[in-house]
Computed example of a mutant assay.
Amino acid sequence: MDPKTLAAYDSDAAAFAKDWHEQPAPVDLHEVVERYFVRGGNSADIGCGCGREVGWLNANGFSAVGFDASEGLLAEARRRYPELKFAAAELPELKGVGTYDNVLCETVIMHLERAQIAAAVRRLLGIVKPSGILYLSWRITGDCDIRDAKGRLYAAFDAALVLAELKTTTLLLDEEVVSASSGKKIHRLVAKKPGLEIRE
């Protein structure tokens, strides 16, 4: 994770959490999850922030745990959703993270340096169980890296960099849309991991 981005989230976690909870509901994300995620399976939200989607997942039949690199945001998540599970983990390594039927990573990987993105996608796919689902999105900001007023990195990279790491999967969704929640342009992918081969 980019250190300046992580520092920004840690230092102003309460303000970020308030902003995210006051945004319109991400109904487009919810529709994608309802359509593609494995019902009855376990789920992980990687880069869960203040826990908004972990709360929604658990309330809608997708048993979920949240992971984030920011201790400040994790504290906000635990305060807002004390009955749910949250833990520290940082891309691209995701040390200590197990495997899940559904993995959600919503607008996180653009906070990594471009050189780390392929490894992060490989690791995200690695924590998906056979026949499981990976939802992955990132914010599109143009042809060059930028930092916002808070110091957060938005790395610029071609979707081909991500798709190359998903070549063993079945791509169920690949689209560029404007997020219903943030109003920002994002690239969104849903990939199904191959199942285990059964040998006679």
Rank of each mutant, 00 (worst) to 15 (best):
A180V: 08
H30V: 06
D148M: 09
T141F: 06
Q23K: 14
T99N: 06
P194C: 09
L173G: 04
L84M: 15
L6S: 04
I127E: 04
V121I: 01
R52H: 07
A115S: 12
G41C: 09
R152A: 05
A191C: 06
A164D: 11
L124Y: 07
S179I: 12
V177G: 03
V33L: 15
D174V: 10
E76A: 05
G55W: 10
P82G: 08
G49L: 03
R78L: 05
E53K: 00
F62T: 00
A87T: 03
L124F: 04
P82A: 08
E31L: 15
L84I: 12
P82H: 04
S43W: 07
A155N: 12
V162I: 10
Q23N: 10
L6D: 05
T141M: 11
I117Q: 01
G47M: 07
P130F: 09
I109G: 01
E90Q: 14
V103L: 07
G142N: 08
D12N: 15
L172N: 02
V128M: 00
K193G: 02
F67T: 01
F67H: 08
R147G: 08
D143L: 10
Q116G: 03
E175H: 05
C50G: 11
V121H: 00
S70A: 09
V65T: 14
V178L: 12
K184L: 15
T168Y: 02
S131H: 09
I198Y: 12
E165Y: 01
A88W: 11
A159E: 14
H21F: 13
A25R: 14
L173M: 08
C144R: 13
A156Y: 06
G96F: 07
V38A: 13
F67D: 02
V128T: 07
A149S: 14
G51R: 07
G96V: 12
K4C: 03
I127L: 01
L166E: 01
L134P: 00
L172A: 04
T170H: 08
A149R: 13
N58T: 09
S11T: 13
A89Q: 12
G41M: 06
E113L: 10
L172D: 01
R79I: 01
T5W: 03
A14G: 05
F67N: 00
A75H: 04
D28G: 15
H30E: 14
E106I: 08
G61R: 12
E22G: 08
D101H: 15
K4L: 13
K167P: 00
D145M: 04
A25C: 06
A75K: 15
N102I: 00
A59Y: 13
E76V: 03
L6Y: 04
L173F: 09
R188C: 11
A17F: 09
P194K: 05
E90H: 02
D158E: 13
A25Q: 13
A7T: 11
Y81D: 05
K95G: 13
D143T: 12
G55A: 15
R39L: 11
A88G: 04
L94P: 08
Y9S: 04
E22C: 05
